[in-house]
Simulated assay, not measured.
Amino acid sequence: MKITIISVGKIKEKFFTDAIKEYAKRLSKYCKLSEEVISDERADESFSQMEIEQVKIKEGTKILNKIKSNTYVFILHINGEQLSSEKLAQKINNLGIEGNSDLTFVIGGSNGLSDEVLNRADFKLSFSKMTFPHQLFKVILLEQIYRAFKINSGEAYHK
């Protein structure tokens, strides 16, 4: 299985990059993982809603340019469906059985995702109604994907 993580904004904190590298290393046993980092657009707090929408559109265009046509796209979105770790594992497993062995997970920027990106989603996934820092969320996402593979393999990591 091939997993691609597309995220907006570079991660600057070493402890986050170390955690991401650790989960990427762990995942290498189960899948081919690739990461695409999209540069975030400048958006001051003084920006109007129209200016924020333009930022989302610019970031969205960059995201869409990275999504392959034959991939199954998970968009991480606060209003998406919440799944347990077991249900996420089951969904990933079922997608593989159905022939969807190329999965893409998209993490938007701090202003959210454009309508065009949201419309490209095959599945909108929410981990919580809470808001998380984007840098931390990438770690959480990778851990949950790793957990899903461990569950599907019947290994003892998941408790």
Rank of each mutant, 00 (worst) to 15 (best):
E51G: 02
N119Y: 09
M1S: 08
Y146F: 14
L113W: 09
L33A: 00
A121D: 02
A43G: 12
G108R: 07
K87C: 05
L76M: 02
K25P: 12
L27T: 03
G154P: 03
L88N: 03
E45L: 13
N94P: 07
T104M: 03
L95S: 04
I52V: 06
L83R: 08
N65C: 01
Q54G: 01
E53P: 00
F74Q: 06
F47M: 09
N152M: 14
S101G: 14
N100V: 11
N93P: 03
I20L: 15
I5H: 04
I107F: 14
G99N: 09
K150T: 14
S84K: 00
L95T: 04
Q49D: 07
Y30P: 09
L33T: 02
I140D: 03
E143W: 04
M130P: 11
L103T: 14
E35T: 15
V73M: 06
A19V: 15
S114W: 08
K25C: 11
K138W: 09
S46D: 14
S28K: 10
L118F: 05
L88Q: 02
G154A: 01
K14Q: 15
F132T: 00
A24H: 13
I63P: 05
S28L: 06
R147M: 07
L64W: 07
T17Y: 15
I3L: 15
S34C: 00
L95F: 05
K87W: 05
F105T: 10
I67G: 02
K124W: 07
F16I: 12
G60S: 00
L141R: 07
L113R: 08
N93H: 12
G112R: 04
L95E: 07
I145K: 12
G154M: 02
I67V: 08
I6V: 08
L27Y: 05
S34Y: 01
G9T: 13
I3S: 12
E36S: 10
Y157I: 10
T131I: 11
L83K: 12
H134P: 10
I38P: 05
N65P: 01
E155L: 15
Q49G: 03
A24D: 10
N70F: 08
L103I: 15
S69M: 12
F74N: 09
